[in-house]
Design a protein around this nucleic acid. Structure first.
Lengths: 249, 249
DNA sequence: CGTTGGTTTGATTAATGTCAACGCACGTGG
DNA sequence: CCACGTGCGTTGACATTAATCAAACCAACG
């Protein structure tokens, strides 16, 4: 599997693309570079130039607040665009940084324009940004309405599905190359509390998390206790109710 | 001022539109209807048909979580679209309901397509959705990284600016036709606590809030204590650093 | 006037944060 | 090959924030 297939695979969770579409994507996703962990890909205030695509590793959108706290507002996993909106806004209102070592592609904006010009591909890219938005909403729900344990569980469920559509889940298990401190900054909890919630989930036999590998031992129950409803990810052509919920491999 | 001007005015906070653009908007924003408070405009799971635009009153996006809690994930104020994304996704992943009595327009999707076809107007609409997304991110920051009092203050600042660009702020004061319980569901706090935080802000001489009218008595300090940075609203052509921050009337 | 929805208050409890220390694993340099 | 440093995970004791419960109050409205 080439790296390009990763984006293709994700977009095809929405709808299948033409051969030309795929070729166009692959043509622009070959020149990759590696970014070490804890580096900014773009910083708040920057005027963005190229569009960045994550091909491996975890990155995040984040802001540093007056008090010095870092709040992570989105995870960027393989197949995710960092800044598809580059064409309209003149300055980044947040930073994008790596959580682990990442492989990244820089795509010139003209290439993106070429892609959005194609009917199928254009719709698929639009779909991707709408899903990003839906994820933001769900995170607000998560932080505002769910207690710590469910909050952690919900996030793990989301990653399970998001990583699954790009083929990064095997046997209910995936690489989670981030620290508990990252998780804490994601969910507005302290590291200590995150640690304890993870232990709770382990004790309940729901997950295993050791050396950056997460094993979801009981996905059904994990989703159930966290009130996870996959609809907001709009997989399967955006008609989540017409077809069986996607199972992961 | 006609109601149409409200959307025009908002979009022109990004860039000025042509006369034709404005006429096109006005042609489609005349047939308004009134929705009483606490009514759904669209419900989660619905397949959306028309695009809805709020012309007066407050509405919100929300989800009801397993436990029965309502989490509000966005405010829709005059000039805001409810569902510009209608064309791609097949089912709503959240509901939209009124918080106060609202005047609403239903715009057929073809009209939206006509608008997005025009270069300037299309970009302006895209800008509007990007700002919505930026607001979602800022809300996550707010909930995850700020204590209750700052959280409330930050929201009031955001509304001050958002309402100002559509001309609904006079003398630092605006109508806030929602309950403290709505605020609580917005910020993941209890009603009681919201009440106390509002009292704090009042005691500090920062605001006044009586019979649904909010007076911001010291905007500078309100922004300062809440760490409010207007950049994320991308007013002024998305070049917030090149020009003076917008003052409100 | 009497209801009703919304706001306010006080007392108490529960959830989560903070602080501090320790342990463990990994990598590096001696 | 071992000693040490460093980052991350874990633990316990304690502090603080915010939730909950219950009641009173207030104002708009029929």
């Amino acid at each position: 599997m080439t790296s390009a297939n990763l984006l293709v695979r994700k977009l095809e969770a929405f709808q299948t693309l033409s051969q030309d579409d795929k070729r166009l994507i692959e043509a622009h996703t070959s020149r990759t570079r590696v970014v070490e962990a804890k580096q900014d890909i773009i910083s708040e205030g920057d005027a963005p130039d190229n569009v960045h695509l994550i091909l491996s590793g975890f990155a995040c959108r984040y802001k540093i607040v007056e008090s010095g706290t870092r709040q992570i507002v989105a995870y960027l996993v393989p197949g995710d665009f960092c800044d598809l909106h580059v064409f309209i806004l003149k300055a980044m209102d947040h930073s994008i940084g790596t959580l682990s070592r990442c492989r990244v592609v820089d795509i010139p904006r003209q290439a993106i324009l070429d892609m959005t010009d194609r009917p199928l591909l254009g719709r698929a890219l639009w779909w991707a940004t709408l899903v990003d938005e839906a994820v933001l909403r769900e995170w607000i729900v998560n932080m505002g309405a769910r207690p710590a344990e469910e909050r952690v569980a919900h996030l793990l469920c989301e990653l399970l599905l998001r990583l699954d559509i790009v083929g990064l889940v095997q046997g209910g298990s995936y690489e989670l190359p981030i620290t508990q401190s990252d998780l804490a900054d994601t969910m507005g909890l302290s590291v200590v509390h995150v640690n304890r919630m993870l232990q709770n989930l382990r004790e309940q036999g729901l997950i295993t998390l050791k050396s950056k590998t997460l094993v979801v031992k009981d996905a059904g129950r994990l989703m159930q206790i966290s009130g996870f409803d996959p609809n907001y990810l709009h997989l399967g052509g955006g008609r989540p109710d017409d077809q069986p919920k996607r199972a992961f491999s």
